[in-house]
Nucleic acid binder design. Sequence first.
DNA 1: TTGAAAGCGCTACCAT
DNA 2: ATGGTAGCGCTTTCAA
Lengths: 349, 349
Amino acid sequence: MNVRNVGENIMNKKITIIEIAEMAEVSTATVSRVINNTGKVETGKKEKILELIEKYDYRPNQIAKALQARKSNTIGFVVPHINSPYYAGIFYETEIAAKKRGYTLLLCNSEADKRLESNILDTFVSANVRAIVFMGGRLDDMSIDKKYINEIEKINKKIPIISCVDIPELNCAQVYQEQKISADELLKHLSKEGYKDIALLGGYANIRTTAKRRKEIIENADRYGISIRKDIIESDYSVEGGNVAMQELLKSPQLPEAIICINDLVAIGALSETYKSNVKVPDDIAISGYDNLDISSFIFPGITTIACDYKAYAEAIVDMIQNIDNIAKNTRRTVQANLIVRGSTKRNA
Amino acid sequence: MNVRNVGENIMNKKITIIEIAEMAEVSTATVSRVINNTGKVETGKKEKILELIEKYDYRPNQIAKALQARKSNTIGFVVPHINSPYYAGIFYETEIAAKKRGYTLLLCNSEADKRLESNILDTFVSANVRAIVFMGGRLDDMSIDKKYINEIEKINKKIPIISCVDIPELNCAQVYQEQKISADELLKHLSKEGYKDIALLGGYANIRTTAKRRKEIIENADRYGISIRKDIIESDYSVEGGNVAMQELLKSPQLPEAIICINDLVAIGALSETYKSNVKVPDDIAISGYDNLDISSFIFPGITTIACDYKAYAEAIVDMIQNIDNIAKNTRRTVQANLIVRGSTKRNA
DNA sequence: TTGAAAGCGCTACCAT
DNA sequence: ATGGTAGCGCTTTCAA
């Protein structure tokens, strides 16, 4: 039994501009003019139209509008997993910033799956989105080949793509975080606190973002009298990854004085292991992360982290979309990251 | 300088069904038939059309399709904050389940703001979404009035709304978690472990979901010889909320034997405070939460929790949308929650 | 200041 | 099996 279709009257049906026009005894053109504030309309008619719109709760059909305008106000957003707090943080701020400028966001999880990712891009092309924002996934993999680059660039010819990974060989708009200055800040801080023997923990070398973070740390450690251990215990980017990697590290004959984890989740996972093993943070070992998740400041001890400026990141993305038609195709924009020191690396906290 | 528009050729332009038809020397109707597999088409023509589609990377314009079909494959999803892991978890699974059935999801953060929330609903109505899934926000507030109910029900006449909060007086489809059985499980477990003096921590009484959780605990405690403290220290639903509430609780002349936190984030916040104060979990005090966030099983000790079955929840939502035209308007569906015991409440862990 | 009508890309109906 | 065409709801000329 179709309950929904029983007893519908005009109030329940979606009303169109035609009906408003008929009731106001004007043309649809006139109604369109008052809706969009384009062109003059006699006050009396205008009022009547506005009244009708109010009375019947009329909303212009954005689909029809998008069809005729040949462009929509929808932005496609791809992340591997929205339940990963870093991506959720970026998306959250982006949605808020975009909403202010009249955009609505489609969100898809690529699940780091190649085929899925392609399907999503197809979907976004079909949906005629205004732009596609692309985080993680294949993009973040060092091993992407010319074929993949071509696939992306081909789409980019039809629909602007914003990559949130720094890929020099990819010709599309890119927004990503600066790593050099913040790495310096972290090294300087750790050095000042007396941590000189440091290990890196978590992440995979073939992930661009990871490689970049590691590179900046390794290349600049010398200047602060810090030595970075050659062996990096790798792991995925989750708390569990941090657990596993830290269990491994704790087997070392000689613990490092500090560990720089690839992100806050891994840092939290590592921290948890120290509790199990009765290792004291930061006295026995200091721990730092990246991203500055909410939780990082509220657990004990707080996690020192290279913070992502989520708001600035989101603004940069939306701004780029806003101006996409007036900028060079390969425009790059970086967002500043900055160090936040907390108990996990402060001996006299 | 508009770089994007320089040197475009036919490969870069979005191609339409008309062009495919012309090149294949058939009518658009025929092309449409092969695209949608509706009606017979001569094999030769079919192949030629398919070739052309491949060659020019043609994708049907979903906007035009949606306009003519008078319905889209888009679902609107409203949450207060997608960077809250519980909502992110539900959304994540819903997007995956929905994608399998050809839906794409629009996601908006209501930021628990009344005006914003209304705007979002307007946006979704304008966007002609197939259904609107609604979590938290005003919906979850006890104090919603008849006016609000009317607003929602009015929209529900045009577009199916799925409420993820149990609201008896609201006439729309609803999907929410069962609380009774899982409360029983938790009480039974705590009782068996010897925790009889228990306090509730976090949340606000005027939030429906919170009130329901508390009610099921309070009403069933007796049966397990458990006494629930009358005073509930309230807080928001974050780790920080857990910090603040726990600091307050730790001032009590006599600590309870266990605390049931309103969610895992609050539980984690509470746990962190115990580290600061050198209170042992679970020996001095046991801690449990709700939701079963990923992190809850990987910190130390693991957090005992009443787990949300995210996948089942998502399936229920998408299933409801799929069948929305064939079910009664006020259809309710519940998702089973179940207890997961971890170190935070297990004395001999 | 206003309206008639073309057209956005697609599907579905009606002919053939 | 195939094509012509109306029409989805809207905006935007072009005339008046």
